[in-house]
C-alpha cells in the first residue's frame, strides 16, 4: 500500500463520514430532542446539546399510551406482510422470469398498474371491501392490503433478479428429480438471497410506517399501529413534541437493529451464494 493509496483511503473515509453525517443529522436532532428538558426543545437559537438528560418523554410514550401494544401490532403486521409478500411475490416472479408462457409483458404491466393509483382514491373502496369481508379491526384487514401494494415492487424486482440467473441450475436440478417447487425453494430462492433480503427490508419498512390505511381500517385502540399511535399524541392542550420525538426514536431503533442484523445477509453477495463460473 503506497502513500497514494493511504491518501485515497483517507479521502474515502472523509467522504463517507460527511455523507453519513448529513444523512443522520436530522435523526440525531430528533434523538437529542427526545432527551431534552421541555424548555429547551424549541429554544431560540436552537440548542444542540441538552443541558441535562431528561428521560420523561420515553416514560410518557409507554405510560400515557399503550405504545407497547402498538409496537407489537406493527411488528406482527409488518412481519406477516413481509413474509407473505416475499413468498407470494417470489413465486410469481419466478414464473415470470423463468417459465415459458404467453402474456408475460401484459402480466408485468397489469401487476405494476396496481401502484399507479393515488392511495387516497383506493381508501374508500378498500374499506367497503374489508367491511364486507368482516376484516375491519383485524390484522388480516391490514396485512392483505399491504401485501397487495407490496407485490408490484416485490414481483418486479425479484423477476429482474431471477432473470439474471443462468439456466443451468434448474436443468441440473430437474435431473436430480426435483419438482418445480423444489427447484424454486431449494435452489432458486437461496441464489437471490441478498436481493430477497433487500426487498424484504423495503416491504417491512413500508408496512411498518404506513399510516392512512392503518388509521382507517383499525378503529379499535388495541389494534392501532405505531405511526397512528404517534399521530394520536397531540391534543388541544399540548403538542408533545418531546413525546413524539421519543416515539419516533422508539419506532426507528428496531429497524436500525434489524438492518444491523441483516446487513450481512443483504451484502452476502453471490460469491458466497455459489454462482461462480
Amino acid at each position: 500500500m503506497g502513500k497514494n493509496n493511504i491518501f485515497k483511503l483517507l479521502l474515502f473515509y472523509v467522504f463517507v463520514i460527511l455523507f453519513v453525517g448529513i444523512i443522520v443529522l436530522p435523526f440525531f436532532w430528533q434523538f437529542m430532542t427526545s432527551i431534552k428538558p421541555i424548555s429547551e426543545i424549541a429554544a431560540i437559537p436552537a440548542k444542540w446539546i441538552p443541558s441535562y438528560l431528561h428521560g420523561e418523554f420515553y416514560k410518557n410514550v409507554f405510560t400515557k399510551h399503550p405504545f407497547g401494544r402498538y409496537l407489537l401490532n406493527s411488528a406482527f403486521v409488518a412481519s406477516t406482510t413481509t413474509v407473505l409478500s416475499i413468498l407470494i411475490g417470489a413465486s410469481a416472479a419466478y414464473a415470470l422470469a423463468r417459465l415459458r408462457f404467453k402474456g408475460k409483458k401484459f402480466m408485468l404491466m397489469a401487476i405494476l398498474s396496481i401502484s399507479m393509483f393515488p392511495t387516497i382514491a383506493t381508501l374508500s373502496p378498500i374499506y367497503l371491501l374489508l367491511k364486507e369481508l368482516h376484516l375491519i379491526n383485524k390484522y388480516a384487514g391490514l396485512v392483505i392490503p399491504y401485501i397487495t401494494f407490496a407485490l408490484p415492487l416485490t414481483i418486479w424486482l425479484l423477476t429482474n433478479f431471477f432473470s439474471q440467473l443462468p439456466k443451468g441450475f434448474e436443468e441440473a436440478a430437474e435431473i436430480d428429480g426435483c419438482s418445480r417447487m423444489g427447484i424454486f425453494f431449494r435452489i432458486m430462492l437461496p441464489l437471490i438471497k441478498p436481493a430477497i433480503f433487500s426487498v424484504a427490508l423495503i416491504v417491512f419498512i413500508n408496512a411498518w410506517n404506513e399510516y392512512i390505511y392503518a388509521l382507517t381500517f383499525m378503529t379499535n385502540d388495541l389494534m392501532r399501529t405505531v405511526p397512528v399511535g404517534i399521530a394520536l399524541f397531540p391534543s388541544n392542550y399540548e403538542l408533545p413534541w418531546g413525546d413524539m420525538a421519543a416515539g419516533s426514536v422508539v419506532v426507528t431503533v428496531p429497524l436500525i437493529i434489524m438492518v444491523l442484523i441483516f446487513q450481512k445477509k443483504i451484502i452476502a453477495g453471490l460469491t458466497a451464494g455459489g454462482i461462480k463460473e
Binding site: 453519513v20 444523512i23 410506517n209 444491523l260
Partner: peptide
C-alpha cells in the same frame, strides 16, 4: 455495518413524522 444502517435511517422514519 454502521454506515449501512445509518444510511437507511431516513427511510426508516415514518413519513408523517
Amino acid at each position: 455495518g454502521l454506515v449501512r444502517a445509518a444510511i437507511l435511517i431516513p427511510w426508516a422514519i415514518p413519513t408523517t413524522v
